[in-house]
């Protein structure tokens, strides 16, 4: 429990330093990013490794990778393959900020992409992430609901407590059990 609480505190504190803004780029400019738009599992992984290198180095920069994250997130709003978007979400889990939320959160509303969106959002600090997850919890696809509940629990999202308390009484046992577990983590 201590771990969940401390992680939640870190997320909340870090979130104070950011202000949610919409991404400005509409498509990636870096050729390394353009090269992965058509990536599918089974192809050589080298182009992805190049981007991983970029992410690791950007994370050491003054903006902790925020600039690169905005460019990366444009791959989520375009016609990139699912496998590319999944990879991008993994990278955003490392360097994403609240500024990426408008690009990521629409994926929560599609059962096919809700999980990869959570993989990106769950570790990103900031209230904007909690708000996006709570909004999707209320109005997103039912199939994504348990996963969103779980992510809110892992984030220690106090803003989600009232929604989770309602869901703890859900007639859907999976939702109810997940909500109770999430509330226990949030404390």
């Amino acid at each position: 429990m201590k771990q969940f609480t401390s992680l939640a505190l870190a997320i909340a504190l870090a979130g104070c330093a950011h202000v949610a803004t919409k991404p400005v780029a509409t498509e990636p400019t870096a050729p390394e990013l353009k090269a992965i738009a058509t990536y599918v599992h089974g192809q050589g992984r080298e182009p992805l490794t190049v981007v991983e290198d970029m992410v690791r180095e950007a994370a050491k920069g003054a903006d902790a990778g925020a600039g690169l994250s905005v460019e990366l997130s444009t791959l989520l709003t375009g016609n990139a393959n699912f496998d590319c978007k999944q990879f991008v979400c993994r990278m955003l889990a490392k360097i994403g900020t609240e500024a990426n939320v408008p690009s990521i959160s629409p994926l929560l509303y599609d059962e096919a992409t809700a999980d990869i969106a959570r993989f990106a959002l769950q570790p990103i600090p900031g209230d904007a992430v909690d708000k996006a997850l709570i909004k999707a919890l209320r109005s997103g696809p039912a199939e994504a609901r348990v996963g969103i509940v779980n992510s809110l629990g892992m984030r220690g999202s106090r803003a989600a407590k009232s929604d989770l308390a309602k869901l703890a009484g859900s007639v859907d046992p999976k939702v109810a059990e997940a909500a109770r577990a999430a509330l226990a983590k949030i404390g």
């Binding site: 771990q3 401390s6 992680l7 870190a10 870090a14 994370a59 902790a64 889990a93 490392k94 360097i95 999980d115 959570r118 993989f119 959002l121 769950q122 570790p123 990103i124 600090p125 348990v146 996963g147 779980n150 992510s151 629990g153 892992m154 999976k174 997940a178 577990a181 999430a182």
Partner: peptide
């Protein structure tokens, strides 16, 4: 906890697919 390291802190846990938690 990591000390003053929000980026490493992101690697303490991973999101889980589907309904697993």
């Amino acid at each position: 906890e990591f000390t003053d390291d929000p980026q490493a802190s992101r690697m303490l846990a991973r999101a889980m697919r589907g309904d697993w938690h």
